[in-house]
Design a protein around this nucleic acid. Structure first.
Lengths: 125, 125
DNA sequence: AATCTTGTGCTGGTGCGGTGATACAAGTTG
DNA sequence: CAACTTGTATCACCGCACCAGCACAAGATT
C-alpha cells in the first residue's frame, strides 16, 4: 500500500480534486478569510496522506481560480479578491444541512438531488 | 482520440460515477418514480457517449444500493423500495437553487460549501 | 419454438493520475 | 551574509478506469 492509487468508497473522486474542493469550500464559505495562510504543500500532503506533488496540484488549481496567491517561501494565502458566497446563500445551505441532518439523510443524496434540480432550472442554455 | 479516458473540466469525476449520480439524483428527487424504467444500458451509453460497459457499471452500483431492480431482457426499473428524499429537504434544496441561481453563484461552489458545513455539524464522529 | 431484447462478461489496449524521491529557484529569516 | 522555507519541476513506475468489440445467458416477445 505504498504505491499506486487507491479507490475507497463511491463518491470518492481523486486526492488532488478532493483537496482542491475542500479549500474551495473553506474559502467560499468564509471560514478561510482573505490573507489567511494555507498549510504548507508538504503539510497538507502528509496530513491527508498523499504525495507532495498531489497537494501542489490542488494548490495550482486554486491559484488558477484566483482564489489563492502564492509567493515562494512565503507560502500560499487566500487572495484578497477571493469571492465569498453571499450570506443569503450560505444561510440557505445551513438550513439545508440542518434539515437533512435531523432527518438523517445521506449528504451524497442531497448533493445529487441538488445537481438534478439545478440542471432543471428555467434557463438552462 | 478514439480510445482512452478523457478529462474535460475540473469537477468532472468519472463517466460511470457521473451516470450513477445522475440517476441517484433523479430517483431521490422523485423525478424517476418506483416502477419507472431506465433507458437501456446501450441507450444511456450512446446518449452520453461512453462505452456500454461503463453504463452497465453505473447500473450495477444503483442495484447495489437497492435503488433499482434489473431483470434480464426486461430492463432496469426503479425499485419499489427506493427511498425518496423527504419533501422538506427537497424544498430546501429548491430554495437553495433558486437563491443561488438568482445571485448567479457557481453550483460547484455551493456544493463545496455544503460539504464543508456538513462536516462541521455538531456531531461529527 | 424461434427470435429479439437486455444486462453482463470477457479481451486487449490506452492514458491519466497517482506515488516516491530528489533537485532546484526564489524568498524569507536570523 | 548564510541558512532555512516553500512551491515547483522532474524522473520512472504502476494501477485503475475507460474504450471497443464481441459473445453469452436469461428472459420477453412473437
Amino acid at each position: 500500500m505504498t504505491t499506486g492509487p487507491a479507490t475507497e468508497s463511491v463518491d470518492e473522486s481523486s486526492p488532488a480534486l478532493d483537496i482542491y474542493r475542500q479549500f474551495r469550500g473553506l474559502i467560499a464559505s468564509g471560514q478561510l478569510g482573505a490573507g489567511e495562510r494555507l498549510p504548507t504543500v508538504r503539510q497538507t500532503a502528509s496530513d491527508i496522506g498523499v504525495a507532495a506533488g498531489t497537494a501542489a496540484k490542488a494548490y495550482k488549481l486554486l491559484e488558477r481560480d484566483g482564489l489563492v496567491v502564492t509567493r515562494t517561501a512565503a507560502g500560499t494565502r487566500v487572495a484578497d479578491s477571493a469571492a465569498v458566497l453571499p450570506a443569503s446563500v450560505v444561510r440557505r445551505i445551513r438550513d439545508l444541512v440542518t434539515e437533512a441532518d435531523t432527518i438523517g439523510a445521506n449528504p451524497a443524496d442531497v448533493i445529487d438531488v441538488f445537481r438534478v434540480i439545478w440542471q432543471a432550472r428555467p434557463n438552462t442554455p
